[in-house]
Nucleic acid binder design. Structure first.
Lengths: 203, 203
DNA sequence: CGTGATCTTGACCGAATGGTCAAAACAGCC
DNA sequence: GGCTGTTTTGACCATTCGGTCAAGATCACG
């Protein structure tokens, strides 16, 4: 199976099922903690059948990560240099938080990878990621110099968006343990982060 | 070896060496990714010798975590209800960031545990951690109601301190990849976070 | 120095795990 | 129905890993 693009209906369906199952297992147990048997079971396939569609456990992991990188940066890509600065930044925060809500598994998969020192997507960080961040940081710096937002380091501003939004996905267990069952973390986070970033960047 | 407190000199030395080596390995590879052989090698002992001091891999991990929980909450414990609110909060941020600088391995160990759903310290989150946070949150709420700091949700304020400070330890690889080799992330973070929280809580 | 307790290790074990393979089952098409 | 390429699987393998054990080395102390 060195098929890059699934051709048949069955291939498309099974590759989807495998990647979805693998996302479950990898994000919950990390790369080493995940086993092919568990992934196979979750996907409703036999282990050899898994390995018919992907050459190795590593290949599944890489497939997930590279697929993730794309969508992961979308919220930042949408930051519009021509828009109203404060509204643009608050919109970015809201979009990023929405990703924590919609794709917590992806967030944890990413967190796991970075925590282990990014052995598989290290290179992509220094190219794809850095390039995009530098580009948007320049935009933000422009806004600062024009006096349209308060003076802040653009890179660390972006880091703070990542840290704060991803925290609610990655540390979900902790957040819920502290808040108690009655409260909705993500709902409250939306209001809190709105306030936080509004105070931070409004001139 | 059901010794709780090391008695002899050798025991003290070797248990220290093991826990330090285990911290290295666990924080870098996660629980499942860590092997007794690696830990033993890093500690300069043979594997059976390891298991003379600790009954199992799990026991080493638990020992690390419970030892960690203690020091991990120190910065928050020191938050003084009688102090000047803004200075107290900024001091908390600075202390917490200092922990990311001094104990990045511990931070990653903790992050790994929470990411996996806190299978080993889950209970401690809902008791020890929650109790402390609730207590300090009440203090902060008092400050808000007295008009001494700007109105913010105390729990999410604390979460934001955790998220922002731990991000620089846990996602170090990513931060460095984006910033480039010439910049010192922690140094810049200190100034940035000072600004951020000052703007957030100053009435 | 002798002796009992502490410490260390080589050899080994069973279970789990990533991966292989050849053969069977199946799908699509004439 | 028969043929070809695709899909599925049971049986199997080599390695890794957590953990055991019995015997030997070393230490503390009278």
């Amino acid at each position: 199976m060195n098929v890059q693009k699934p051709r048949t209906r069955i291939q498309k369906k099974n590759r989807r099922a495998i990647l979805d199952a693998a996302l479950d297992v990898f994000s919950a147990h990390g790369f080493r903690g995940a086993t092919l048997d568990r992934i196979a079971e979750a996907a409703g396939l036999s282990k050899p059948n898994l390995l018919y569609y992907f050459p190795s456990k590593e290949a599944i992991h890489v497939a997930l990560l590279s697929q993730l990188m794309d969508t992961w940066l979308d919220p930042l890509r949408e930051l519009d240099p021509g828009g109203e600065p404060v509204a643009e930044l608050l919109g970015y925060v809201r979009r990023k938080l929405q990703m924590s809500r919609d794709f917590p598994r992806e967030s944890r998969l990413f967190a796991n990878e970075i925590l282990q020192g990014a052995p598989r997507i290290g290179p992509a960080l220094e190219t794809e990621l850095k390039d995009l961040v530098d580009e948007k940081a320049a935009v933000i710096r422009g806004w600062v110099e024009a006096g349209r937002i308060a003076p802040v380091d653009p890179h660390h501003l972006i880091f703070s968006v990542w840290a704060l939004t991803q925290h609610y996905a990655d540390f979900d267990v902790q957040v819920r343990a502290v808040l108690g069952a009655a409260r909705d973390p993500l709902d409250e986070a939306e209001r809190f982060l709105d306030t936080l970033f509004a105070r931070l960047v409004t001139p």
